[in-house]
Design a protein around this nucleic acid. Structure first.
Lengths: 181, 181
DNA sequence: TTTATACATGTATTTATTTACATGTTTTAT
DNA sequence: ATAAAACATGTAAATAAATACATGTATAAA
Protein backbone atom coordinates (compact mmCIF):
# COMPACT_ATOMS: atom_id res chain seq x y z
CA UNK A 1 0.00 0.00 0.00
CA UNK A 2 1.53 3.26 -1.07
CA UNK A 3 1.19 5.34 2.08
CA UNK A 4 0.38 9.04 1.84
CA UNK A 5 3.87 10.26 2.53
CA UNK A 6 4.18 9.19 6.15
CA UNK A 7 7.94 8.98 5.69
CA UNK A 8 8.05 12.75 5.37
CA UNK A 9 6.61 13.13 8.86
CA UNK A 10 8.86 10.44 10.31
CA UNK A 11 11.87 12.39 9.10
CA UNK A 12 10.45 15.64 10.44
CA UNK A 13 9.63 13.93 13.73
CA UNK A 14 13.13 12.51 14.13
CA UNK A 15 14.69 15.86 13.30
CA UNK A 16 12.38 17.62 15.77
CA UNK A 17 14.34 15.98 18.59
CA UNK A 18 17.86 16.52 17.29
CA UNK A 19 19.81 17.11 14.10
CA UNK A 20 20.70 13.96 12.16
CA UNK A 21 22.41 12.79 8.99
CA UNK A 22 20.68 10.70 6.34
CA UNK A 23 22.64 7.77 7.66
CA UNK A 24 21.38 8.37 11.20
CA UNK A 25 17.82 8.47 9.92
CA UNK A 26 18.36 5.24 8.00
CA UNK A 27 19.71 3.63 11.18
CA UNK A 28 16.64 4.74 13.15
CA UNK A 29 14.60 2.24 11.12
CA UNK A 30 16.82 -0.57 12.40
CA UNK A 31 15.95 0.26 15.99
CA UNK A 32 13.18 2.39 17.52
CA UNK A 33 11.13 3.35 14.49
CA UNK A 34 11.71 -0.07 12.97
CA UNK A 35 9.16 -1.53 15.39
CA UNK A 36 6.38 0.11 13.43
CA UNK A 37 7.74 1.45 10.14
CA UNK A 38 10.34 0.57 7.53
CA UNK A 39 12.30 2.53 4.93
CA UNK A 40 15.48 2.16 2.87
CA UNK A 41 18.22 4.72 2.47
CA UNK A 42 17.40 4.90 -1.25
CA UNK A 43 14.05 6.35 -0.26
CA UNK A 44 15.42 8.58 2.48
CA UNK A 45 18.18 10.48 0.65
CA UNK A 46 16.01 11.76 -2.22
CA UNK A 47 13.26 12.71 0.25
CA UNK A 48 15.73 14.72 2.35
CA UNK A 49 16.57 16.65 -0.77
CA UNK A 50 12.91 17.29 -1.51
CA UNK A 51 12.16 18.37 2.07
CA UNK A 52 15.04 20.80 1.89
CA UNK A 53 13.69 22.19 -1.41
CA UNK A 54 10.37 22.65 0.38
CA UNK A 55 12.22 24.48 3.20
CA UNK A 56 11.02 22.06 5.86
CA UNK A 57 14.59 21.09 6.76
CA UNK A 58 18.08 22.49 6.16
CA UNK A 59 21.57 21.08 6.38
CA UNK A 60 25.13 22.00 7.25
CA UNK A 61 28.27 20.15 6.20
CA UNK A 62 30.74 18.59 8.63
CA UNK A 63 33.95 16.67 8.05
CA UNK A 64 34.81 13.50 9.93
CA UNK A 65 38.50 12.50 9.89
CA UNK A 66 40.35 13.70 6.81
CA UNK A 67 37.62 14.17 4.25
CA UNK A 68 34.42 12.25 5.00
CA UNK A 69 31.63 14.70 4.41
CA UNK A 70 28.40 14.48 6.37
CA UNK A 71 25.22 16.43 5.81
CA UNK A 72 23.67 17.17 9.17
CA UNK A 73 20.00 18.03 8.81
CA UNK A 74 17.87 20.21 11.09
CA UNK A 75 14.16 20.97 11.04
CA UNK A 76 13.04 24.49 10.13
CA UNK A 77 10.22 26.43 11.80
CA UNK A 78 8.04 25.62 8.81
CA UNK A 79 8.94 21.94 9.14
CA UNK A 80 8.04 21.92 12.84
CA UNK A 81 4.77 23.62 11.99
CA UNK A 82 3.83 20.97 9.43
CA UNK A 83 4.85 18.17 11.80
CA UNK A 84 2.65 19.47 14.59
CA UNK A 85 -0.21 20.06 12.23
CA UNK A 86 -0.04 16.43 11.09
CA UNK A 87 0.09 15.13 14.66
CA UNK A 88 -2.93 17.21 15.60
CA UNK A 89 -5.05 16.09 12.64
CA UNK A 90 -7.58 13.27 13.02
CA UNK A 91 -6.30 9.78 12.11
CA UNK A 92 -9.52 8.22 10.92
CA UNK A 93 -8.28 5.35 8.77
CA UNK A 94 -7.55 1.95 10.27
CA UNK A 95 -5.23 0.49 7.66
CA UNK A 96 -5.17 -3.26 7.17
CA UNK A 97 -2.29 -4.96 8.98
CA UNK A 98 -0.46 -6.73 6.19
CA UNK A 99 0.78 -9.88 7.89
CA UNK A 100 1.92 -12.57 5.46
CA UNK A 101 1.47 -15.39 7.95
CA UNK A 102 -2.14 -14.40 8.64
CA UNK A 103 -2.70 -14.30 4.91
CA UNK A 104 -1.43 -17.85 4.48
CA UNK A 105 -3.51 -19.02 7.41
CA UNK A 106 -6.63 -17.65 5.74
CA UNK A 107 -6.20 -20.10 2.88
CA UNK A 108 -5.84 -23.17 5.08
CA UNK A 109 -9.27 -24.76 5.09
CA UNK A 110 -8.91 -27.92 7.20
CA UNK A 111 -7.98 -28.10 10.87
CA UNK A 112 -5.95 -31.25 10.18
CA UNK A 113 -3.74 -29.60 7.54
CA UNK A 114 -0.23 -30.91 8.30
CA UNK A 115 1.30 -27.49 7.56
CA UNK A 116 -0.55 -25.84 10.44
CA UNK A 117 1.62 -26.95 13.37
CA UNK A 118 4.99 -26.04 11.82
CA UNK A 119 3.63 -22.71 10.61
CA UNK A 120 2.28 -21.78 14.02
CA UNK A 121 5.46 -22.90 15.75
CA UNK A 122 7.63 -20.84 13.39
CA UNK A 123 5.57 -17.75 14.12
CA UNK A 124 5.59 -18.44 17.85
CA UNK A 125 9.39 -18.37 17.79
CA UNK A 126 9.47 -15.14 15.82
CA UNK A 127 6.99 -13.38 18.09
CA UNK A 128 8.59 -14.70 21.26
CA UNK A 129 11.91 -13.25 20.12
CA UNK A 130 10.28 -9.98 19.19
CA UNK A 131 8.63 -9.82 22.60
CA UNK A 132 11.94 -10.39 24.34
CA UNK A 133 13.56 -7.71 22.21
CA UNK A 134 10.79 -5.24 23.04
CA UNK A 135 11.02 -5.97 26.74
CA UNK A 136 14.76 -5.37 26.60
CA UNK A 137 14.17 -2.07 24.82
CA UNK A 138 11.69 -1.07 27.50
CA UNK A 139 14.12 -2.02 30.26
CA UNK A 140 16.96 -0.19 28.54
CA UNK A 141 15.10 3.04 27.79
CA UNK A 142 12.56 3.34 30.54
CA UNK A 143 14.01 1.13 33.33
CA UNK A 144 12.40 2.23 36.58
CA UNK A 145 10.34 5.33 35.92
CA UNK A 146 9.13 6.54 32.54
CA UNK A 147 11.26 9.17 30.85
CA UNK A 148 9.13 12.29 31.02
CA UNK A 149 10.51 13.55 27.71
CA UNK A 150 9.69 10.50 25.62
CA UNK A 151 6.22 9.63 26.80
CA UNK A 152 4.98 8.70 23.33
CA UNK A 153 7.85 6.30 22.83
CA UNK A 154 7.10 4.74 26.19
CA UNK A 155 3.46 4.29 25.20
CA UNK A 156 4.19 2.70 21.86
CA UNK A 157 6.66 0.30 23.43
CA UNK A 158 4.08 -0.63 26.01
CA UNK A 159 1.56 -1.14 23.24
CA UNK A 160 3.92 -3.26 21.17
CA UNK A 161 4.71 -5.46 24.17
CA UNK A 162 1.02 -5.88 24.87
CA UNK A 163 0.42 -6.76 21.23
CA UNK A 164 3.20 -9.32 20.99
CA UNK A 165 2.08 -10.82 24.26
CA UNK A 166 -1.40 -11.29 22.87
CA UNK A 167 -0.03 -12.66 19.61
CA UNK A 168 2.16 -15.27 21.33
CA UNK A 169 -0.67 -16.29 23.68
CA UNK A 170 -3.02 -16.78 20.77
CA UNK A 171 -0.38 -18.87 18.96
CA UNK A 172 0.24 -21.01 22.05
CA UNK A 173 -3.46 -21.62 22.57
CA UNK A 174 -3.97 -22.45 18.91
CA UNK A 175 -1.07 -24.91 18.96
CA UNK A 176 -2.52 -26.48 22.14
CA UNK A 177 -5.90 -26.71 20.45
CA UNK A 178 -4.39 -28.60 17.51
CA UNK A 179 -2.77 -31.18 19.76
CA UNK A 180 -5.97 -32.05 21.59
CA UNK A 181 -7.48 -33.76 18.55
CA UNK B 1 6.09 -0.86 1.53
CA UNK B 2 5.92 -2.55 -1.83
CA UNK B 3 5.12 -6.13 -0.89
CA UNK B 4 6.63 -9.05 -2.79
CA UNK B 5 3.56 -9.86 -4.84
CA UNK B 6 1.31 -11.08 -2.06
CA UNK B 7 -1.69 -10.01 -4.10
CA UNK B 8 -0.91 -12.75 -6.59
CA UNK B 9 -1.35 -15.36 -3.87
CA UNK B 10 -4.47 -13.72 -2.48
CA UNK B 11 -6.07 -14.01 -5.90
CA UNK B 12 -4.92 -17.62 -6.26
CA UNK B 13 -6.16 -18.35 -2.75
CA UNK B 14 -9.58 -16.86 -3.39
CA UNK B 15 -9.89 -18.75 -6.70
CA UNK B 16 -8.83 -22.00 -5.01
CA UNK B 17 -12.17 -22.03 -3.22
CA UNK B 18 -14.41 -21.08 -6.12
CA UNK B 19 -14.39 -19.32 -9.47
CA UNK B 20 -14.77 -15.54 -9.30
CA UNK B 21 -14.90 -12.43 -11.47
CA UNK B 22 -12.50 -9.53 -11.05
CA UNK B 23 -15.38 -7.66 -9.47
CA UNK B 24 -15.94 -10.45 -6.94
CA UNK B 25 -12.26 -10.38 -6.04
CA UNK B 26 -12.38 -6.62 -5.62
CA UNK B 27 -15.39 -7.02 -3.32
CA UNK B 28 -13.53 -9.57 -1.19
CA UNK B 29 -11.27 -6.75 -0.01
CA UNK B 30 -14.31 -4.92 1.34
CA UNK B 31 -15.18 -7.84 3.60
CA UNK B 32 -13.17 -10.90 4.71
CA UNK B 33 -9.77 -10.22 3.21
CA UNK B 34 -10.15 -6.53 3.97
CA UNK B 35 -9.43 -7.25 7.63
CA UNK B 36 -5.80 -7.88 6.79
CA UNK B 37 -5.06 -6.74 3.24
CA UNK B 38 -6.17 -4.04 0.82
CA UNK B 39 -6.22 -3.70 -2.97
CA UNK B 40 -8.01 -1.66 -5.62
CA UNK B 41 -9.65 -2.94 -8.75
CA UNK B 42 -7.09 -1.02 -10.81
CA UNK B 43 -4.45 -3.32 -9.38
CA UNK B 44 -6.55 -6.48 -9.63
CA UNK B 45 -7.63 -6.40 -13.28
CA UNK B 46 -4.12 -6.08 -14.77
CA UNK B 47 -2.83 -8.76 -12.40
CA UNK B 48 -5.60 -11.16 -13.48
CA UNK B 49 -4.40 -10.67 -17.05
CA UNK B 50 -0.81 -11.38 -16.04
CA UNK B 51 -1.72 -14.47 -14.03
CA UNK B 52 -3.62 -15.79 -17.01
CA UNK B 53 -0.59 -15.14 -19.27
CA UNK B 54 1.42 -17.15 -16.75
CA UNK B 55 -1.20 -19.92 -16.94
CA UNK B 56 -1.94 -19.82 -13.23
CA UNK B 57 -5.59 -18.97 -13.88
CA UNK B 58 -8.01 -19.10 -16.82
CA UNK B 59 -11.34 -17.52 -17.59
CA UNK B 60 -14.61 -18.17 -19.35
CA UNK B 61 -17.09 -15.54 -20.52
CA UNK B 62 -20.66 -15.35 -19.28
CA UNK B 63 -23.46 -12.96 -20.12
CA UNK B 64 -25.74 -11.42 -17.50
CA UNK B 65 -29.03 -10.03 -18.78
CA UNK B 66 -28.85 -8.83 -22.37
CA UNK B 67 -25.19 -8.09 -22.90
CA UNK B 68 -23.20 -7.56 -19.69
CA UNK B 69 -20.07 -9.63 -20.12
CA UNK B 70 -18.35 -11.17 -17.11
CA UNK B 71 -15.03 -12.93 -17.03
CA UNK B 72 -15.23 -15.78 -14.57
CA UNK B 73 -11.76 -16.86 -13.48
CA UNK B 74 -10.68 -20.31 -12.25
CA UNK B 75 -7.37 -21.52 -10.88
CA UNK B 76 -5.30 -23.93 -12.97
CA UNK B 77 -3.34 -26.93 -11.64
CA UNK B 78 -0.17 -24.90 -11.98
CA UNK B 79 -1.80 -22.06 -10.05
CA UNK B 80 -2.88 -24.39 -7.25
CA UNK B 81 0.65 -25.78 -7.13
CA UNK B 82 2.21 -22.33 -6.73
CA UNK B 83 -0.35 -21.37 -4.10
CA UNK B 84 0.38 -24.42 -1.99
CA UNK B 85 4.10 -23.99 -2.39
CA UNK B 86 3.82 -20.43 -1.07
CA UNK B 87 1.68 -21.49 1.89
CA UNK B 88 4.21 -24.23 2.76
CA UNK B 89 7.25 -21.95 2.60
CA UNK B 90 8.68 -20.40 5.77
CA UNK B 91 7.40 -16.91 6.61
CA UNK B 92 10.46 -15.54 8.36
CA UNK B 93 9.92 -11.80 8.09
CA UNK B 94 7.92 -9.91 10.69
CA UNK B 95 6.92 -6.82 8.74
CA UNK B 96 6.50 -3.58 10.63
CA UNK B 97 2.87 -2.79 11.42
CA UNK B 98 2.38 0.57 9.76
CA UNK B 99 -0.08 2.28 12.07
CA UNK B 100 -0.31 6.04 11.53
CA UNK B 101 -1.66 6.71 15.00
CA UNK B 102 1.23 4.86 16.66
CA UNK B 103 3.58 6.88 14.49
CA UNK B 104 2.09 10.15 15.69
CA UNK B 105 2.21 8.97 19.26
CA UNK B 106 5.93 8.30 18.94
CA UNK B 107 6.55 12.00 18.36
CA UNK B 108 4.61 13.19 21.38
CA UNK B 109 7.21 13.81 24.03
CA UNK B 110 5.31 15.13 27.06
CA UNK B 111 2.68 13.26 29.05
CA UNK B 112 0.73 16.50 29.46
CA UNK B 113 0.47 17.18 25.73
CA UNK B 114 -3.12 18.38 25.25
CA UNK B 115 -3.44 16.44 22.00
CA UNK B 116 -3.03 13.08 23.76
CA UNK B 117 -6.53 12.63 25.20
CA UNK B 118 -8.48 13.45 22.01
CA UNK B 119 -6.12 11.28 19.94
CA UNK B 120 -6.52 8.29 22.24
CA UNK B 121 -10.28 8.72 22.41
CA UNK B 122 -10.58 8.90 18.63
CA UNK B 123 -8.64 5.64 18.28
CA UNK B 124 -10.63 3.99 21.03
CA UNK B 125 -13.81 4.65 19.08
CA UNK B 126 -12.32 3.28 15.87
CA UNK B 127 -11.02 0.11 17.51
CA UNK B 128 -14.21 -0.45 19.52
CA UNK B 129 -16.19 -0.32 16.28
CA UNK B 130 -13.76 -2.64 14.57
CA UNK B 131 -14.02 -5.08 17.46
CA UNK B 132 -17.81 -5.05 17.27
CA UNK B 133 -17.63 -5.61 13.52
CA UNK B 134 -15.24 -8.54 13.95
CA UNK B 135 -17.41 -10.11 16.63
CA UNK B 136 -20.41 -9.82 14.33
CA UNK B 137 -18.43 -11.49 11.55
CA UNK B 138 -17.47 -14.30 13.90
CA UNK B 139 -21.06 -14.75 15.01
CA UNK B 140 -22.31 -14.68 11.43
CA UNK B 141 -19.78 -17.11 9.96
CA UNK B 142 -18.92 -19.44 12.80
CA UNK B 143 -21.96 -19.07 15.12
CA UNK B 144 -22.05 -22.17 17.30
CA UNK B 145 -19.35 -24.57 16.12
CA UNK B 146 -16.45 -23.71 13.88
CA UNK B 147 -16.91 -24.44 10.18
CA UNK B 148 -14.59 -27.36 9.49
CA UNK B 149 -13.90 -26.14 5.98
CA UNK B 150 -12.74 -22.66 6.85
CA UNK B 151 -10.54 -23.29 9.83
CA UNK B 152 -7.94 -20.71 8.79
CA UNK B 153 -10.56 -18.04 8.45
CA UNK B 154 -11.88 -18.93 11.89
CA UNK B 155 -8.38 -18.63 13.34
CA UNK B 156 -7.61 -15.26 11.81
CA UNK B 157 -10.95 -13.87 12.97
CA UNK B 158 -10.19 -15.14 16.46
CA UNK B 159 -6.76 -13.54 16.24
CA UNK B 160 -8.13 -10.22 15.00
CA UNK B 161 -10.69 -10.11 17.81
CA UNK B 162 -7.98 -10.86 20.33
CA UNK B 163 -5.81 -8.13 18.84
CA UNK B 164 -8.54 -5.47 18.82
CA UNK B 165 -9.48 -6.44 22.34
CA UNK B 166 -5.91 -5.87 23.46
CA UNK B 167 -5.71 -2.62 21.53
CA UNK B 168 -8.88 -1.19 23.09
CA UNK B 169 -7.82 -2.29 26.58
CA UNK B 170 -4.48 -0.59 26.16
CA UNK B 171 -6.18 2.60 24.96
CA UNK B 172 -8.64 2.55 27.89
CA UNK B 173 -5.86 2.05 30.42
CA UNK B 174 -3.76 4.79 28.83
CA UNK B 175 -6.68 7.23 28.90
CA UNK B 176 -7.31 6.32 32.55
CA UNK B 177 -3.63 6.88 33.31
CA UNK B 178 -3.79 10.38 31.79
CA UNK B 179 -6.74 11.37 33.95
CA UNK B 180 -5.10 10.39 37.23
CA UNK B 181 -2.61 13.24 37.10
C1' DT C 1 49.23 -4.11 8.61
C1' DT C 2 45.54 -5.70 6.28
C1' DT C 3 40.95 -6.78 6.52
C1' DA C 4 36.38 -6.57 7.85
C1' DT C 5 32.83 -3.73 9.42
C1' DA C 6 30.56 0.36 10.01
C1' DC C 7 30.03 4.98 8.28
C1' DA C 8 28.36 7.86 4.54
C1' DT C 9 25.79 9.30 0.25
C1' DG C 10 23.96 8.91 -3.70
C1' DT C 11 21.38 6.92 -8.46
C1' DA C 12 18.81 3.52 -11.46
C1' DT C 13 15.48 0.21 -12.16
C1' DT C 14 11.64 -2.38 -11.17
C1' DT C 15 7.58 -3.26 -8.79
C1' DA C 16 3.56 -2.08 -5.94
C1' DT C 17 -0.12 0.85 -4.91
C1' DT C 18 -3.18 4.78 -4.99
C1' DT C 19 -6.04 8.04 -7.23
C1' DA C 20 -8.19 9.51 -11.12
C1' DC C 21 -10.04 8.84 -15.67
C1' DA C 22 -13.33 6.31 -18.56
C1' DT C 23 -17.35 3.60 -19.99
C1' DG C 24 -21.29 0.85 -19.98
C1' DT C 25 -25.13 -2.57 -17.87
C1' DT C 26 -28.40 -4.37 -14.47
C1' DT C 27 -31.07 -4.20 -10.51
C1' DT C 28 -33.50 -2.02 -6.87
C1' DA C 29 -35.90 1.62 -4.83
C1' DT C 30 -38.90 5.51 -5.42
C1' DA D 1 -40.96 5.58 -15.43
C1' DT D 2 -36.85 7.20 -13.70
C1' DA D 3 -33.22 7.65 -10.80
C1' DA D 4 -29.89 5.77 -7.75
C1' DA D 5 -27.07 2.10 -6.50
C1' DA D 6 -24.70 -1.83 -7.51
C1' DC D 7 -22.51 -4.56 -11.08
C1' DA D 8 -18.71 -4.90 -14.31
C1' DT D 9 -14.16 -3.91 -16.65
C1' DG D 10 -10.73 -1.57 -17.99
C1' DT D 11 -6.53 2.34 -18.53
C1' DA D 12 -3.53 6.42 -17.14
C1' DA D 13 -0.82 8.90 -14.20
C1' DA D 14 1.45 9.67 -10.03
C1' DT D 15 3.56 8.19 -5.97
C1' DA D 16 5.76 4.88 -2.80
C1' DA D 17 8.94 1.46 -1.95
C1' DA D 18 12.17 -2.42 -2.75
C1' DT D 19 16.27 -4.08 -4.87
C1' DA D 20 20.31 -3.37 -7.18
C1' DC D 21 24.02 -0.51 -8.75
C1' DA D 22 27.82 2.55 -7.47
C1' DT D 23 31.51 4.75 -4.77
C1' DG D 24 34.35 6.10 -1.21
C1' DT D 25 36.08 6.90 4.04
C1' DA D 26 36.92 5.76 8.97
C1' DT D 27 37.39 2.68 12.59
C1' DA D 28 37.95 -1.56 15.01
C1' DA D 29 39.53 -6.18 15.02
C1' DA D 30 42.75 -9.75 13.73
Amino acid sequence: MAQRNKLKFIILGLLSEKELTGYDITKAFDSDIGEFWSANHSQIYPLLKRLEDDQLISHRLTITGEKLEKKVYSITDQGAKELNQWIGEPTPALSATKDEFILKLYFIRKNNDPRLAPMLTEQLNLHKNKLIHLQQQMEKKFHNQSDKNNFGHFLILQHAIQRENGYTNWLIETIQGLKSK
